[in-house]
Simulated assay, not measured.
Amino acid sequence: METTLARMAGARMSLHPQPLNAAAFAPFGDVIETRPAGDPGAFPINGGMVTRHHDLATVELGGGRALINLFEARPYAYPMEIAMLERHPLGSQAFIPLSDRPFLVVVAPPGNTLEAGSVRAFITNGRQGVNYHAGVWHHMLLALDAPSCFAVVDRGGDGNNCEERWLAQPLRLELPDA
C-alpha cells in the first residue's frame, strides 16, 4: 500500500501509512532491522553463539556526543491530527523498539520548507527501528495499541538540535484497515 495524501471533498488531507522498508525510507534515514541469512553484513561472532548484524545505521553527531536513552511511549487515539513536525539539524536520531510492537513513523524531507504534500507515513513490523538523518522532519514517537519502550540514540552537546514547525494545514493520520 502506497502512502497517499487524498483531499476529501472540502476536508483536510489524509495520510495513510505504508509498510516500512529500506528503499522507501532511504530519503529520510535508515531502517534498523536484522539482515537475512547469507547477507555479508550478518556474520557469526563470539564462538558462533551470536550473529552480528553489522553497520545498520549511520549515526551523525555533528561534533557532539552520542546519547543512549530509553523512551516509554503511550499510544495516541487514532485517527489523529498531524499538525507539527520536528527535526534535529545537528545529528541523527535512532528509535529501536524494545517491546516488539509496531509503531508509526511520519516523516518529510529535510529542508527549510515543510509542505503537507511531502509528508510520508510508514508502519513498522514491530522489530524494525529507524534512524532519521540529520535535518529530516519527523513527528514525535507514535506508539500503537499499547505502551511501548524504545532505545534511542541521539546527539548531545552544544548547539540547538531541535526545531519544531507547524504545518499550514494539519493532516489526518488514518491507520490501515486491520
Rank of each mutant, 00 (worst) to 15 (best):
T3F: 07
A11I: 04
R12I: 06
S14H: 13
L15Y: 09
L15P: 01
H16I: 03
P17M: 11
P17W: 06
Q18I: 04
P19M: 09
P19N: 06
N21W: 04
A26C: 08
F28P: 00
T34F: 08
P36C: 06
A37Y: 10
G38E: 08
P40R: 13
P40V: 09
A42W: 07
A42D: 04
G48V: 10
G48L: 09
T51D: 12
H53S: 12
D55L: 11
L56N: 14
A57H: 05
T58G: 13
T58S: 14
T58Q: 15
E60Q: 15
E60F: 11
G63T: 09
G63P: 00
A66M: 15
A66Q: 14
L70F: 10
F71S: 06
R74G: 08
A77Q: 15
P79G: 06
E81A: 07
A83R: 15
A83Y: 12
A83N: 14
M84S: 08
M84H: 09
M84G: 02
L85P: 03
E86N: 08
R87K: 13
R87W: 00
R87E: 01
H88W: 10
H88R: 11
L90A: 08
L98R: 14
L98W: 08
S99C: 12
P102C: 05
L104A: 01
V105S: 09
V107N: 03
A108R: 00
P109G: 07
P110S: 14
G111E: 06
T113C: 03
T113I: 10
L114G: 06
L114M: 07
G117I: 02
V119R: 02
A121V: 09
A121M: 08
F122Y: 13
F122S: 03
I123C: 08
I123W: 05
T124M: 02
T124D: 02
Q128S: 05
Q128C: 01
N131F: 03
N131D: 06
H133Y: 01
A134S: 14
G135Y: 04
G135I: 06
V136C: 03
V136T: 10
V136H: 00
H139E: 11
M140N: 15
L141H: 01
D145A: 14
A146P: 04
P147Y: 12
S148I: 02
F150T: 03
A151L: 11
A151W: 01
V152E: 06
D158W: 03
N161V: 13
N161W: 12
C162S: 03
E163A: 10
W166S: 15
L167Q: 00
L167S: 07
L167M: 11
A168E: 15
Q169F: 01
P170T: 13
L171E: 00
L171Q: 09
A178W: 04
